[in-house]
Amino acid sequence: MNNLFDLTGKTAIVSGASSGIGVEFAEMLADQGADVAILARRYDKLKAVAEKITAKYPERRIIPIECDVTKENQIIAAVQKVMAEFGKIDILLNNAGIVDSVPIEALEEEAWDRVLDTDLKGVFLMSKHVIRHMKERKYGRIVNTASMLGLTASASIPTHSYNAAKGGVIHLTRGVAATYAKHGITVNAIGPSLFKSEMTENTLFSEQALKMYNAVCPMGRPGNPGELNGAVLYFASDACSYTTGQTLFVDGGWTII
């Protein structure tokens, strides 16, 4: 039986790949055989990530591309560069994201727009310009990073703009999946709970916040490095050829209670 999770010969784009789980995803895709274009705003960090992955997997092509996913012109240029380098795009992992924790009565419009533009509009724009190439080849795997907070709310930390954006990602995933299923393109999402990243380590990993999280989460702990990789690999591979429009919550059981 063929290994349905083998990505040898595939090419992938990972946005938000300069730190945190984006780096883990890029490394995992390379480990499974894919060549990877990593995108983010901070080129110096991207370059270091590319060098790290290349040192570990010298047979892979890892290219860093500076790109702000809120800027359509930068996305167009990035996709053109990937096509020039690889000639095709098999996998798109929309992972770029930010969060703002401000009560709604104090939430400035500019701050709201910043989160929605990055977390939701970025998914729309990246998908828009990649899916055209996938459609031509009648093959594609799009994986969006949503969140458990796209389904649930937080009583202790006000993340209203983030909740709205990630809820939008979940439903955008469904809509795009329905439209492009007949073109051989699957579109799915992961919904992580608490994982350590630049975005969470100084807030949600404080002693008080972690104690509160662990008391509620059925598994009694946050996610560990690598525990999102299985879900991403499934959605990025041929194993999910008949699975589309789904969001898999990798959350230690948070959303079941």
Rank of each mutant, 00 (worst) to 15 (best):
N2I: 14
N3C: 08
L4R: 14
G9C: 05
T11W: 13
G16D: 05
A17K: 00
S18T: 10
V23H: 09
V23S: 08
M28A: 14
M28I: 01
L29Q: 07
D31T: 08
Q32F: 09
D35Y: 08
I38R: 08
A40S: 15
A40G: 05
R41S: 01
D44F: 00
D44C: 00
L46C: 07
K52N: 14
I53H: 10
T54E: 07
E66S: 13
C67R: 04
C67G: 04
N73E: 13
V79S: 04
I91F: 02
I91R: 06
N94A: 11
N95L: 08
E105N: 15
E108M: 10
D119G: 01
F124D: 03
F124A: 04
M126G: 07
M126K: 03
S127I: 06
H129W: 09
V130Y: 03
R132V: 13
T145E: 03
A155H: 13
I157F: 13
H160A: 15
N163L: 02
K166D: 04
K166F: 10
G167H: 13
L172H: 00
R174D: 01
V176W: 05
A177F: 12
Y180V: 13
A181L: 04
H183W: 13
V187W: 08
N188E: 04
A189M: 09
I190Q: 04
P192S: 08
K196A: 14
K196L: 10
E198R: 09
E198D: 15
E201K: 15
T203H: 10
L204C: 05
F205C: 11
S206A: 02
S206K: 12
M212R: 15
V216G: 00
N224W: 10
P225Q: 03
E227P: 09
L228P: 11
N229A: 09
G230H: 06
A231I: 00
A231P: 01
V232S: 04
A236T: 07
T243G: 00
T243W: 01
T244W: 11
V250S: 10
G252Y: 01
I256W: 03
I256K: 11
